[in-house]
Design a protein around this nucleic acid. Structure first.
Length: 289
DNA sequence: CAGTCGTGGGG
DNA sequence: TCCCCAAGACT
């Protein structure tokens, strides 16, 4: 019954999909894995340049694994959530050591890699190896929730019911399922957006339960807004930004000028050390070896 | 389960 | 300006 929806979305995707570099033919699973790490909570527009630099510099997992983790952190630039860079580096090491340098095609093996959760494992298996999996990112969840359940936003946590709903859309054939994953994700990213959906441009507006119900507003608990200014996260970011630009260790007193509140600076420093994002030596702090 | 973890652009 | 939130993972 949802095959009509799937067909329409796939047809739309065929003509309207953005030409993203990691979607081009010949993209390797490793390159796709890099894109998926970078795209975790980071918009496409900001990923394009860093992704190209990464795939040029580290064309295979072994190349990244051979470098200090600090180089991954430095090359991460200002993508945000730099622990992802560390996890991707650790994933490269694991692939190099435990999988003969090849990104595993097995979903469970992917899921076991550092920084790879349910979403990323399914995405790499689907986009990199053409397998059939539920790929439930924020876009797909919003799309199926609106079309299938008539609700504006998906719940905070993924329920069995929502998973079952998603299954009703997933095509039987693996290549088609993988394409559906990409297409439904694209629809959520450019048409069925969170704030101002462009329903007039939607290929399945006539089959959307949310539209049929008159676009009822979200009735669940209010979204917790993310605070940032003045938080430890901002402080950590400021500290790391300094170290990314330096090749030599930075003395503590100098590094402290990156943040006005000293207690918070110390707390951020301890956190960054604990995370392995920075290292401490006799001459000061630096990105890890 | 709820909190934590960066950064920047668009409405 | 301010606020929202963007291809999540981990604890």
């Amino acid at each position: 019954m949802n095959s009509a929806v799937v067909s329409a979305v796939l047809r739309w995707y065929g003509s309207e999909a953005r030409d993203l570099p990691w979607r081009r033919p010949g993209t390797t699973p490793w390159q796709i894995m890099i894109s998926e790490f970078m795209l975790q909570q980071t918009p496409v527009a900001r990923v394009l340049e860093p992704w190209q630099r990464w795939v040029d510099r580290w064309p295979v997992p072994a190349a990244l694994a051979a470098e200090p983790s600090g180089e991954a952190v430095r090359a991460w630039g200002r993508l945000g959530y730099p622990r992802r860079a560390l996890r991707l580096h650790r994933a490269a090491v694991a692939i190099d050591q435990d999988h003969d340098g090849e990104v595993p095609a097995d979903l469970a093996a992917l899921r076991a890699l550092p920084g790879v959760g349910d979403y990323t494992a399914a995405a790499v298996a689907g986009f990199g190896f053409g397998q059939r999996h539920l790929v439930l990112d924020t876009n797909v969840r919003r799309v199926i929730t609106r079309i299938g359940a008539g609700v504006q936003y998906p719940a905070t946590s993924l329920s069995a019911a929502e998973r079952a709903l998603a299954e009703t859309f997933l095509p039987r054939q693996a290549p088609r399922a993988a394409r559906w994953a990409a297409a439904s994700m694209e629809l959520g990213a450019v048409v069925c957006t969170a704030r101002s959906p462009r329903c007039d441009d939607c290929p399945v507006r006539s089959r959307c339960a949310w539209r049929a119900a008159g676009y009822p507003a979200w009735a669940g608990p209010p979204r917790l807004g993310q605070t940032y200014t003045g938080t430890d996260r901002q402080c950590r970011g400021a500290v790391l930004a300094v170290l990314r630009e330096r090749d030599e260790p930075v003395p503590s007193e100098e590094l402290a000028t990156a943040w006005p509140d000293h207690d918070q600076f110390e707390r951020a420093l301890a956190g960054l050390l604990a995370d392995g994002l920075i290292s401490e030596g006799p001459a000061g702090y630096a990105l890890p070896i």
